[in-house]
Design a binder for these strands. Structure first.
Lengths: 369, 369
DNA sequence: AGTGTTGATTAAAACGTTTGAACATCTTGG
DNA sequence: CCAAGATGTTCAAACGTTTTAATCAACACT
């Protein structure tokens, strides 16, 4: 199996697999595979191995460029030290900070997060979920996917004892532990901000119907308005179309801004579903000759990168994304540790507290004119 | 090893590993592991298996929620069907489209890209590179990392016959096949654009010294200016500080914009190192009361999302990122197929052609005033 | 009855690890 | 001189697959 032949007078090991194995090292320095394994994996037994032997084996390993085969090791140890992270659309700037939160938590646990990007495609999502199962991820974190058709895949996760957590959406109704922002509170924060600035005529862009976040955000906003005795002109309530492309939020915002103006109704502020939409609104207003914030205040939701680097910066409701990711990671690690495949009944839910971030896109009514 | 006990009068298999295996299925329907394997993996031999048997096995597999163990399979087949994708900083919007290009190419090859994000940390980068090696990725694509200290890890890749390709940087000097944008041409395009708009007094923000892209971009721009007989005021040439945080481009651009104004020199356009820097410049100018593009034109480089959704949109030099990713993927797939671990000597390099994208941030000199 | 042929299934080895048990070889004390 | 530890090393089985070669039954043809 290990052929050796001479090249330039020197013995060169030639492997089929192309990878250096324990056997290669064992042969090269005259010990058994067991000993080599014990030394290199720093098993407890390695204390009984002569220091000189240890030295020799280590030296040879690094000389040959040995790296243990995670497949063989995982097979034997029955632990993959891997958790799957399945993002529905990684190009959504929303995902990154969550991912970072997950990652930092995983590192200390010695786990490798396998990140997969479904690119908004249901089929891809399913096929990745399958791969995650096949690669024996010990748990799965799903980021903000609003599809979950493949109930049998979920059932398969259960059959195979793989704990799962979703972040960015409340799916406790389906029995999945969830971490999500308190959208209602977020919507309320945004509306309160506008009202405090003195705005009374407020246009609203709601999210697409299929987006689970849309409803509660609007509810939160509406209640605050109602409490203050303000009514929102129903002619000024718009809704993003169901998403098609990745930047449909931006496009939608831009065209709805024009639609707002076309109604002829008066408004001094726009409450947008999310940051991209808000940026779209700014664009739309700008193309119609209106300036933000002088002529109209705009606020978004999420606090993603483009919102902070635009000028004016977009006032927004920040989600503590990294923290949410980190909590998700802690949950799955705990689930793995405790060996509990099934979530608590009812499954846990964590509501992250949103936070108002004031930037250049908001101004008091008549303040800067 | 497979214990069974009764629950509610029904036989329930109870596995240690928590995962359904071929053996479970074999027992459950009275065939051997071999047969089950042959059927479920759709090996050529499966044609000889009685149709009824196939049916039965498949049914049982899906009922139990079986998914083949990728570890065991890869161990046996000696193929992981995985390639490692190592991003130096995934939060750079630059990475995503590249990743998408890679992904779409990988899918058809049936490969899984394992995406890892080094978060700009050298140590993380190395540790992920090691993991990639351990997980027996059949090849590695590195995205735009400007560190490559760990020469011994690279040497290990060679020892283990793992082909590697880098995208976003020319590292052929280190013997690594590379895919990068033609920065010189890009710089030239940007400068030509400004000159065609009539600008003559142009401020420049160069990238940090450690950024390999910086020099050629500036060279391309400089040559074009020289050809047209224009000299750039050396007082108006600035340089971003070495990066510390992720948005140092933005911060740097903003503060340098103020530095430009502080020189008292006249300028009507700014050529920024990249899009985030350009956005920073816009912010800086705006805070000093200047409007873009009426008072000053700004162009960036890369064409990342924030540049397109800001208002005004940032004129920029687009890199064909998805295409670059796709080429990288094709290269590694080819390398895997041909079994050539070592790259050609000299290693191949692909120069992607940049493209000017004109947006609202550029205006002809005196055009809109 | 012997010889193929075909069709359906399986036994067994291998992939590269890890690990509990076993095996030598030395000390040491009785 | 043997029992009883230490000390250092190895055997062999196992993890869940895939795959080659083998088995076995049934059936057709000389």
């Amino acid at each position: 199996m290990l052929l050796t032949f001479r090249v330039g007078g020197k013995q060169v090991p030639q492997r089929k697999s192309g990878h250096v194995t324990l056997l290669d090292i064992a042969r090269a320095c005259g010990y058994s595979v067991s000993t080599v394994s014990i030394v290199l994996s720093e098993a407890p037994l390695s204390q009984n191995v002569a220091a000189s032997t240890r030295e020799q084996i280590r030296a040879m390993a690094s000389q040959l460029g040995y790296h243990p085969d995670a497949y063989a090791r995982s097979l034997r140890r029955r632990r993959s030290q891997t958790i799957g992270v399945l993002a529905f659309d990684l190009s959504d700037p929303f995902c990154l900070p969550i991912m970072r939160g997950i990652q930092s938590e995983m590192q200390r646990g010695g786990y490798l997060p396998m990140l997969m990007d479904a690119q908004t495609h249901r089929k891809l999502f399913d096929s990745y979920l399958k791969m995650v199962l096949e690669r024996r991820a010990e748990a799965v974190i799903v980021i903000a996917s609003w599809i979950f058709e493949e109930a049998n895949l979920l059932a398969d996760m259960e059959k195979n004892n793989v704990p799962i957590v979703i972040v960015g959406r409340d799916l406790t109704s389906r029995g999945i532990p969830s971490i999500a922002v308190d959208n209602e509170e977020g919507g309320a924060l945004a509306m309160r901000h506008l009202l405090e600035l003195g705005h009374r005529d407020i246009a609203v862009v709601r999210g697409p119907v299929e987006m689970f976040d849309s409803e509660p955000r609007w509810n939160g906003a509406r209640h605050v308005a109602a409490q203050m005795g303000i009514t929102i002109d129903s002619q000024l309530i718009f809704q993003l179309p169901d998403l098609v492309g990745p930047d449909s939020g931006f496009e939608g915002g831009a065209s709805l801004a024009k639609a707002m103006l076309a109604t002829g109704r008066k408004f001094s502020a726009v409450l947008a579903f999310d940051d991209l939409t808000a940026l779209g609104v700014v664009r739309g207003l700008s193309e119609s000759g209106l300036r933000v914030p002088q002529d109209c205040t705009v606020v978004g939701f999420d606090d993603v990168l483009p919102a902070s680097v635009a000028t004016p910066g977009i006032s927004t409701i920040r989600q503590p994304l990294a923290e949410m990711g980190s909590i998700a990671a802690q949950w799955v690690l705990k689930a793995i540790e405790s060996g509990q495949s099934a979530p608590a009944n009812p499954p846990e839910v964590h509501w992250a507290q949103p936070q108002l971030v004031i930037r250049g896109s908001s101004a008091p009514l008549h303040g800067t004119e």
